[in-house]
Amino acid sequence: MNINYDVIIVADVIRLEEKRLLEEAQNAGLRVLLLNLSSKGFRIGEERLAPYALIRSISMYRSLYSASFLEASGYRAINSSLSILLAGDKALSLPLFFKSGIPIPPTYLALSPETAIGYMTSRRKPLIDKPPIGSWGRLVSIIDSDITAKIVVEHREEIPSPQMKAHLIQDYVQINGEDIRCFVVRGDVVACMKRKAPPGEWRTNVAIGAQTEPFTPTDTVTEISVKAVETIKADYGSVDIGVDKITGEHYLFEVNGVPEFKGLEKTTKANIAKAIIDVVKR
Rank of each mutant, 00 (worst) to 15 (best):
N176M: 11
F215C: 03
A197P: 00
P198E: 07
V185S: 10
A207E: 14
A207F: 14
I208T: 06
V229R: 14
A191M: 13
A191V: 13
P199W: 05
A197T: 03
N205A: 09
K194P: 07
D179Y: 00
D179C: 00
T204R: 03
G177V: 09
E213H: 06
R195L: 05
K194W: 10
A191R: 10
I208Q: 01
A210T: 08
K196T: 09
P217C: 09
T216S: 14
G187I: 11
V206H: 14
P198V: 08
V185Y: 07
T204M: 04
P198F: 04
V185H: 08
A207S: 15
I180D: 04
C192Y: 11
A191P: 15
R186T: 13
R203E: 01
V229M: 10
A191N: 11
G187L: 12
P199V: 05
T212L: 12
D188I: 14
V189C: 01
D188Y: 12
T218V: 03
T231G: 09
I224A: 12
F215R: 14
I224Q: 07
T204E: 02
E223I: 01
P217N: 08
E178D: 08
G187M: 12
A210L: 09
V206P: 10
G187Q: 10
R203Y: 01
G177R: 06
G200S: 05
V221L: 01
V229D: 04
V173S: 02
T212I: 15
V173A: 07
A210D: 04
F183W: 11
C182K: 10
R186N: 15
R203N: 02
V184H: 07
K196Y: 07
R195V: 03
I208N: 01
W202F: 15
K194R: 15
Q174G: 02
R181F: 10
I180T: 09
V206C: 11
E201Q: 13
V190F: 03
T222N: 10
K194A: 08
T216C: 12
E201R: 10
V221F: 04
A210M: 05
R203P: 00
P217A: 08
V206W: 15
G177C: 06
T222E: 03
E213Q: 14
T220I: 13
R181D: 11
E223G: 09
R186E: 15
R186L: 09
M193S: 04
I224D: 08
V189F: 00
A191F: 12
A210V: 08
G177P: 07
C192T: 09
V189N: 00
M193L: 07
T231L: 11
E223S: 14
V229Y: 06
T222K: 14
T204K: 06
C192R: 14
A207Y: 14
R195C: 04
A228T: 04
G200F: 01
F183M: 12
D179G: 00
V229N: 08
R195E: 03
V190N: 05
P214D: 03
Q211S: 14
E230N: 09
E213W: 02
A197G: 06
D219Y: 11
D179V: 00
V190R: 07
T231W: 05
F215V: 06
V190E: 01
F215T: 03
A207D: 11
C182L: 15
I208Y: 03
I175E: 09
V226T: 04
A197N: 03
I224W: 07
D179F: 01
Y172A: 12
A207Q: 15
